[in-house]
Design a binder for these strands. Structure first.
Lengths: 347, 347
DNA sequence: ATGAAAGCGCTAACAT
DNA sequence: ATGTTAGCGCTTTCAT
């Protein structure tokens, strides 16, 4: 029981009080240079296979792993990607989050998450985020000022907007072809005989909502129609519900189809129409959403919607990250990937 | 326009090429010691108010913020809390995530998120996580071996299981009073006249599911009843749907009430019962869930369920983190907070 | 109260 | 291929 109580003294780590073995400890135990230990954990570094094996073996035995913080300090890259997300209440975003997490894990990167509270901006959290030598910032469903985006850019931190188009051309945007899909929805509804089509918008000022609306209106125009109504549903369930309420409370028949800028609003609208207004969907009124969240396929809703190509959007995002280049001034800062109309029971 | 192009040369940071101003730069500009800059950003440190003001003022002007990575390196604490989450598909967990994120933001801490893919364990990601000098690990809805938990503990990293009870007494558990609420559900169903009650379990081996079941069975026993059936629904929508299908496909009337170990299974069961089996809920069969996710209140489901006190659970978790102490050997490693039965239309 | 100097644990030149 | 030596940007003694 004569276990020595010395610590970091002889350089031989006590096997009884492990926890934080360092590269120095390891090198002492093996009688080699500390830098060799570092090399053993650096791919493509000049070190003999034999030495690397010995180092790794001992490392496994004593539970050594390089300290990522120390590494980050001199490489100036932490291996951490920040994801700034508003509106996590919308089930679409947890789906994005899940996919993103898997993707980053595969690349050995970490995911630092910020949920932006309703009514606040991504800007508020950025100063904090930037203290961590983040490799990149992905902003989704949240607003960030050009000023802040530029600040990141100047620090060499790429900023990518996912599911938001942004004017600022020091950042990338990755989106679904929203306007085009808006057109598809209009074409589909008109083809099915609907003529008095309304639009339930998401949050004001969001490109996704206005792009979808623009395409929708444009295609209606091609059929000689105009928008029967347009309300703001704030991208929330409650907003969709309230919009449907506003449109149908008087049983007036001005509207026979509802295109909602996202699914969660569509669910809210459906719940009002079916359970409160007691209308028959799609007979009395059709409803179409956008995103194709999981619940859209539940029998209770069975929602016709536009599927966002989440996986492809993330693939593009990761590719942009890997390239690391900021968008060229020329302008092509927007990447669009194609959505798909999924027809179910509501339209 | 004679802006000098020198950089980090005289020590005077160029105002045209900022990005990474360091404490050293700042101290040079002010003709003071770098350690004073550090002190200016350290609460309760010995520095005159006057000097601190000057430093902060300049820092704001040039956009200096202390490098969190460098700070972490010598304080050995990164200000980052890791959240390891399985099953993000269950809407309950995004709700937890949101609340947790807000809470950590309030304390100035960062949230590192890991989503554990289905079929894998939290153990797989822990070695990676530990490289980052994490302040604590919260595990929710995922399994982690005692071995891994002990490893964290030995490194001085507190591990807290949220919504999972665990035998290992080097970690804390924070749960709802699951067994008690299971009893409440049974009492409620029996009181409403249901006699042939089935249980749809979550993932096998999870304490939450078995605790809820145990309480449920116990209370049924008090009323002289036994469990009419018990199936595994794996805590998923599809699992709940499949379980209901298995129980009701033959229109046999062995069961008149279903207690599902979580809400998302209950939604699956409800969708099958109402839209496929065309049964009347709650007339033909009652359904009760657990969690009180947002969708439980949607008119399409209107689910009677047990509300988990998410906020309180997180409060307790944060308090444990602040205290930092590992559970005392004596055993009281489990914190239970009270749930609440929310009666709606399905039972 | 402030300055000087020694690390935190690693990576990245340099040597050899 | 390996060892030696400087840092990365801070915090923290230790002086003064």
């Amino acid at each position: 029981m004569a276990t020595s109580k010395k610590k970091s003294d002889t350089g031989l780590a006590d096997s009884i009080a492990p926890g934080n073995v360092t590269a120095k400890d390891l090198s002492n135990m093996l009688g080699i240079a500390q830098s060799s230990v570092s090399r053993a954990f650096t791919p493509d570094s000049r070190i003999s296979d034999e030495l690397r094996q010995r180092i790794i073996a001992l490392a496994d035995e004593v539970g050594y792993r390089p300290n990522a913080i120390a590494r980050s300090l001199n490489t100036k890259s932490s291996g951490i990607v920040a994801l700034v997300m508003g509106d996590i209440t919308n089930p679409f975003y947890p789906e994005v989050l899940e996919a993103f997490s898997y993707r980053l894990q595969k690349e050995g990167k970490q995911l630092l998450l910020f949920v932006v509270p309703p009514g606040r901006q991504a800007d508020d959290v950025m100063p904090q985020v930037l203290q961590y030598q983040i490799d990149a910032v992905i902003v989704t469903s949240a607003h960030m000022s050009s000023r802040t985006a530029d600040m990141c850019c100047r620090r060499g931190i790429p900023v990518i907007f996912l599911n938001r188009r942004v004017k600022n051309n020091s950042v990338w945007s990755v989106c679904c072809n929203n306007a085009r899909m808006g057109e598809s929805v209009a074409d589909y509804l008109v083809e099915r005989g609907y003529r008095r089509c309304a639009f339930i918008a998401g949050a004001a000022n969001t490109s996704t909502s206005s792009d979808r609306r623009r395409g929708f209106v444009k295609a209606l125009g091609r059929h000689g129609l105009t928008l029967a109504a347009s309300l703001d549903g704030h991208y929330t369930y409650e907003g969709g519900y309230a919009a449907a309420h506003a449109l149908f409370r008087n049983q007036k028949n001005d509207v026979d189809a509802l295109f909602c800028a996202n699914d969660i609003m569509a669910l809210g609208a459906l719940d009002y129409l079916k359970h409160v207004a007691k209308l028959a969907v799609p007979h009395d009124v059709a409803v179409v959403g956008f995103d194709d969240i999981r619940a859209a396929a539940f029998p209770a809703y069975n929602l016709t919607t536009v599927r966002q190509p989440t996986q492809e959007m993330i693939d593009v995002t990761m590719r942009l990250l890997a390239e690391g280049a900021p968008p060229d001034q020329a302008g092509k800062a927007l990447h669009e990937v194609g959505g798909q109309l999924i027809t179910r029971g509501t339209a």
